[in-house]
């Protein structure tokens, strides 16, 4: 885009406007977080969070340690409730229902929202049983259907070709990168709507990391993905939007291209440039 100098003022205005989250009318909102506050006892962990997460996008959450990014991720499937002293205010509207409402059961939520953790955590079971675990809990007993789910999930996680001849072997025998893709396949087996990923590649070697990143790009065609990462380049490479958290607040949330080229807030610029954190 080539602009005349006369447009300068309007450009500068538009740059500053980017401090507010871009709304994208063509995209459906999966999660709408409204005025979310969270306390761990007296500690105010999340402060007035307002974020819209869009369908079939990868949303990256970045920020220094202790900024609240993992806490926010864990509010999206209510895992944060495992901490006894936690209390929240505000709303997290998922598919038009507030998941913080008491009437919304955790079980119901977690059939729709899967999660992948920092360290691969397969069950000490066979590859097959790892994938079939969720569907079995949901009452599927038919072997043929389970076989189909296992194959589809492993294909979806781009690991079918590597494990199809050893489905009965223990998942612990796989490499770290393979274990992580097994965990992603296990997550896909329950046919979620959203996948939460908490630093899913931080324990992996560069090649495995690349495979998982490519997988994330494939998965977003069918799922909405929210990924917490400490790796700036990873956020830049794979996400559509990026939220920068600092001290429990969202400093800036915008399209990833904007965040990594012309961030509106100096704190964002300093963080992504490696000047703090």
């Amino acid at each position: 885009m080539v602009l005349g100098i006369k447009e300068e003022n309007s450009i500068v205005k538009s740059i500053h406007m980017a401090t507010k989250p871009s709304t994208d009318v063509a995209k459906k909102v999966v999660y709408d977080t409204r005025n979310l506050n969270l306390w761990y006892g007296d500690h105010h962990g999340l402060k007035d969070i307002n974020l819209s997460i869009y369908e079939n996008e990868v949303t990256a959450i970045i920020g220094p340690s202790g900024c609240g990014k993992s806490t926010y991720l864990k509010t999206l499937n209510r895992m944060v409730e495992l901490v006894p002293s936690v209390r929240t205010s505000g709303e997290i509207v998922y598919r038009e229902r507030n998941i913080l409402d008491k009437s919304y059961t955790v079980e119901e939520l977690r059939t729709r929202v899967g999660m992948v953790f920092q360290k691969p955590n397969p069950f000490p079971k066979s590859i097959y049983d790892n994938i079939a675990y969720g569907p079995r809990i949901h009452g599927i007993k038919n072997k043929k259907i389970l076989d189909e789910i296992v194959e589809k999930s492993l294909r979806g996680a781009a690991i079918w070709d590597e494990v199809k001849d050893r489905l009965n072997q223990n998942a612990y025998g796989l490499s770290g990168g393979q274990q992580q893709r097994i965990c992603i396949a296990r997550c896909l087996a329950i046919e979620p709507d959203v996948i939460l990923m908490d630093e899913p590649t931080s324990a992996l070697d560069p090649i495995s990391t690349l495979k998982v990143e490519e997988l994330v790009q494939e998965l977003k065609k069918d799922y909405s993905i929210i990924i917490v990462t400490h790796n700036m380049q990873q956020a830049a490479r794979i996400s559509d939007r990026t939220a920068f958290f600092l001290s429990g607040e969202v400093v800036e949330y915008d399209k990833t291209d904007v965040i990594f080229q012309t961030p509106a807030d100096q704190r964002t610029e300093d963080y992504i440039s490696g000047r703090f954190g």
Binding site: M1, V2, L3, G4, I5, E8, I11, Q261
Partner: peptide, 10 residues
Amino acid sequence: VKGKHYELNN
């Protein structure tokens, strides 16, 4: 400075 392309003198 601005992160945008400008044509200063046509």
